[in-house]
Amino acid sequence: MNLFEARNIHKEYARQKALDNVSVNIKEGSVFGLLGPNGAGKTTLIRIINQITAPDSGELFFEGRPLKADDIQKVGYLPEERGLYKKMKVGEQALYLAQLKGLSRKDALRGLKYWFEKFEIQPWWNKKVEELSKGMAQKVQFVTTVIHKPKLLIFDEPFSGFDPINTNLLKNEILDLKKEGATIIFSTHNMASVEEICDHIALINQSRKILDGPVNEIKQTYKSHIFELEFLGNLQLLKLPPSIRVLESEQNGETGKIRIQQQDNMTNNDLLKIFMNETEVLSFREIIPSMNEVFIQVVEQYNQKNH
């Protein structure tokens, strides 16, 4: 079931398109990666999901029915540009933000106690925010994002500004939240973390959605049928059909190493057979592109086509 759905969203700022017919479906319990170059329209889409701005046209659905104003209580948002009231005390501020999300004072206090202890920031409760280190303030902000147990969490570049230890801590928290059933929209430029965390991605470029699908399928789609083989035998004696192009080869005494690209759409087994008939195969591996490569390839192709 889709927790959130956006259909044919259009948004313009002063005759400049920010989103052009963008639709996304976010499955309940999934981690949805929202990718795209700077200025592509990701933030606008996030703000529309958050009801900070309204689309010019298009429909929004939450839990299968049209999005209501009240639904913002079920959304937690960690914006890319973090900010807290500098002069306000940490605890007071966390309590205020939690209450703004609709929690009662009592529930908010109980939840804050749990999270502050978990992150070991309890001693900072009565300190002013301006006294905190950047990482500490980020933790406070993370707590205020998740305190009301939102069904939909939106993290915009959540790891920026965190050291590796805290990044890891945060990543585990996000995965824990997913396990507990939260649906997560994850916007980032860090493709390594996309592969680690996301189930599904949408790629937005120049205000259009140009790619959408489960991470595994996308990688399969964008693989370029490149294989790497190691075998016992002589490279020179290898007879390959013309549909197989040799990209790289290397002979190390008895063993040969080869990188090929096949253009005939044969199955992996058929491909293997060709080698099996002639050599002793030591290893066989299809090269699957990283999300980073997919991202660059798709965006560049699109930009070339549209210039």
């Binding site: 913002i72 948002y77 914006p79 900010g83 009231y85 933000l97 703004l100 205020t144």
Partner: peptide
């Protein structure tokens, strides 16, 4: 201006109008 420059405003208006 304080809310704008400290960037907290985005969090707040994701909770209230």
């Amino acid at each position: 201006m304080e809310e704008k420059s400290s960037r907290i405003v985005e969090v707040i208006i994701s909770s209230v109008k």
